[in-house]
Write a protein that binds this DNA or RNA. Sequence first.
DNA 1: CCAAGATAGTTGAGCCCTCAACTATCGCGG
DNA 2: CCGCGATAGTTGAGGGCTCAACTATCTTGG
Lengths: 155, 155
Amino acid sequence: MDHDAVRWLDEDQQWAWRRFLEGTSRFFEALGDAHDEGLPVTLGEYHLLVQLSEAPERALRMSALADFLALSRSRLTHTVDRMEKRGLVTREPVPGDRRGVRCVMTDAGYDALVAAAPGHVTAVRRLLVDVLDADEMTTLGRAMSKVAHAAKGAE
Amino acid sequence: MDHDAVRWLDEDQQWAWRRFLEGTSRFFEALGDAHDEGLPVTLGEYHLLVQLSEAPERALRMSALADFLALSRSRLTHTVDRMEKRGLVTREPVPGDRRGVRCVMTDAGYDALVAAAPGHVTAVRRLLVDVLDADEMTTLGRAMSKVAHAAKGAE
DNA sequence: CCAAGATAGTTGAGCCCTCAACTATCGCGG
DNA sequence: CCGCGATAGTTGAGGGCTCAACTATCTTGG
């Protein structure tokens, strides 16, 4: 790539980009810590359980879960392995497609979700929602929605 | 934590929070991919080299680097180990504090930074900067700056 | 109806990160 | 000026993630 042809970032862009980098890094570290200190599931496991809790019959096939959570299939397989061992989810065949696997939330998984939710939401408020005013939160949502779309198109 | 006392997120907050989650996840995955496919250093190594390039004598002590990059000391030690083996940085004693270690960028490190910069900036534009309008970018920067501060206070 | 490519998911090796324990040095209160 | 808590950085074991290879099943064009 030609160095002279690159459109470098101007000062404002550079500033915003670096705040984004630092902010996301520190935010996810702190949120992860909140889960590790006192909640029964990690942040990633929590998001997985949330997706299942909102699905019909509290079950989704692996590929759908991977897509919703933006995880690689391999990573999801490993994560579900661990959660299955702890009794939070089970695996079942998908009716009508013998390649497929349905991941189903158990009652213990639901209990873990319910137990983790207050601490999780409290941390998300403390670290993000309550730190921003409503306009900033809305703009953040809209902006990141665009970003997600751009990144998805680039896959 | 009492379930009934929790201030849950309203619908708009929930929406924005989920867009933020998905957006950051997909963004960093795509940016990491851009580095893995064709650039001589990973995203993390790139950020480390950027910090060094802006420091006097292209050197910083480990603790300062860890702080700027929001990395644990241990992680930084391991990362610098690997980069040192590849000749991108070297370690030197800090004059006046025999506990300290200065991490110094080599010429090869500088070359790697220069080689990676165009691809990096192009990807950041494609995935973030050019996707947002100027107002959104500014708000994003200000918002994440607040978030970084909140997370830092919580350490 | 079948061959070839696409899709679903798993596997295991290797790499990177985390965590706790450790060494070494600094600096301050008494 | 000494003892002790704080600070700087490293180490290695353990665990999670990535990547490529693999099996199994589905689907589609001819």
